[in-house]
């Protein structure tokens, strides 16, 4: 609860700062770092077990390499949905529905999207 309030608060601050320029870069970097650590963590995203991405060691080969994300997924909502509920795009996919099944929190998925856009 407190954590959530803090998150919202820091988001609000970041947004205010952002509107003045400068501050947003900092908040982004934090989200990117968080996103990377959630994506790599085996108990969390464990994306590496199926996707080649970034500097990840020993990636699995079940899914396509996650590269050039901004180019391939210009629509942020679309990219987010592919993580939140990949069943929407392919009801037989083996990729877990990270949001639909609460494997990751909304905040964690947002952070991953932030991170993916750096790839």
């Amino acid at each position: 609860m407190i954590k959530k309030t803090l998150m919202v608060l820091s988001l609000a601050i970041a947004m205010t700062l952002g509107s003045f320029g400068g501050g947003i870069a900092l908040a982004d970097e934090e989200a990117v770092n968080q996103g990377k650590s959630v994506a790599f963590n085996r108990q969390k995203g464990n994306c590496l077990s199926c996707h080649m991405m970034d500097d990840g060691d020993q990636p699995g080969t079940q899914g396509p390499p996650l590269v050039a994300m901004k180019l391939r997924f210009p629509d942020r909502e679309n990219l987010r949905s592919r993580i939140y509920n990949p069943l929407e795009f392919n009801p037989n996919t083996i990729m877990p529905p990270f949001g639909l099944h609460n494997i990751l929190s909304d905040e964690e998925i947002d952070a991953i999207v932030e991170y993916l856009y750096t790839l």
């Binding site: 077990s49 199926c50 699995g60 080969t61 079940q62 069943l87 083996i94 877990p96 529905p97």
Partner: peptide, 21 residues
């Protein structure tokens, strides 16, 4: 399960492919 796999997802579709090592 929460991760949404069938047996065949791993041992058919995924057979021969790596989960890490």
């Amino acid at each position: 399960g929460q991760l949404n796999f069938s047996c065949f997802d791993c041992h058919g579709t995924g057979a021969g492919k790596g989960v890490r090592l």
